[in-house]
Computed example of a mutant assay.
Amino acid sequence: MLLQIKESGELVKVLDVQELIDPNTDVIRAQEQEGQEEQQPDSYNKKTLVFPSGEALPRCWVDANYRNGSN
């Protein structure tokens, strides 16, 4: 799955989708998608990522308390 870094617009390839959808995990491992050579995996805070369309990640992926209505 590809996501986009909000600030730079660069695409990153998510290495573990389960890590991405786990609301108790704030940081995921991904690879930047630049150039023709595969980049080294790096850590990214989920709050800095959006879908390539610019849409935010679902709240249930980033907030373990989303059902309680608290932030």
Rank of each mutant, 00 (worst) to 15 (best):
residue 41 P to E: 11
residue 34 E to K: 13
residue 47 K to H: 07
residue 54 G to H: 09
residue 38 E to Y: 02
residue 37 E to G: 03
residue 66 Y to S: 07
residue 64 A to G: 02
residue 48 T to P: 00
residue 51 F to E: 06
residue 40 Q to N: 08
residue 43 S to I: 05
residue 26 D to K: 12
residue 54 G to M: 07
residue 62 V to A: 05
residue 50 V to Q: 14
residue 25 T to G: 00
residue 48 T to L: 07
residue 65 N to G: 03
residue 63 D to K: 08
residue 44 Y to M: 05
residue 29 R to E: 10
residue 30 A to T: 07
residue 24 N to L: 09
residue 54 G to W: 09
residue 40 Q to E: 04
residue 55 E to I: 11
residue 47 K to E: 10
residue 49 L to W: 04
residue 49 L to Q: 01
residue 29 R to V: 01
residue 61 W to S: 04
residue 65 N to E: 11
residue 45 N to I: 07
residue 62 V to H: 02
residue 55 E to K: 14
residue 63 D to P: 05
residue 56 A to H: 06
residue 52 P to Y: 01
residue 33 Q to E: 15
residue 55 E to Y: 01
residue 45 N to R: 13
residue 39 Q to A: 14
residue 33 Q to K: 11
residue 28 I to N: 04
residue 33 Q to M: 15
residue 35 G to S: 11
residue 63 D to M: 10
residue 59 R to Y: 00
residue 61 W to Q: 05
residue 56 A to Y: 01
residue 30 A to D: 06
residue 30 A to N: 05
residue 63 D to A: 05
residue 42 D to Q: 14
residue 26 D to Q: 09
residue 53 S to W: 02
residue 64 A to L: 08
residue 60 C to P: 01
residue 24 N to V: 00
residue 32 E to N: 07
residue 64 A to W: 03
residue 49 L to V: 07
residue 64 A to P: 13
residue 29 R to F: 04
residue 43 S to R: 13
residue 27 V to L: 04
residue 44 Y to A: 02
residue 34 E to I: 14
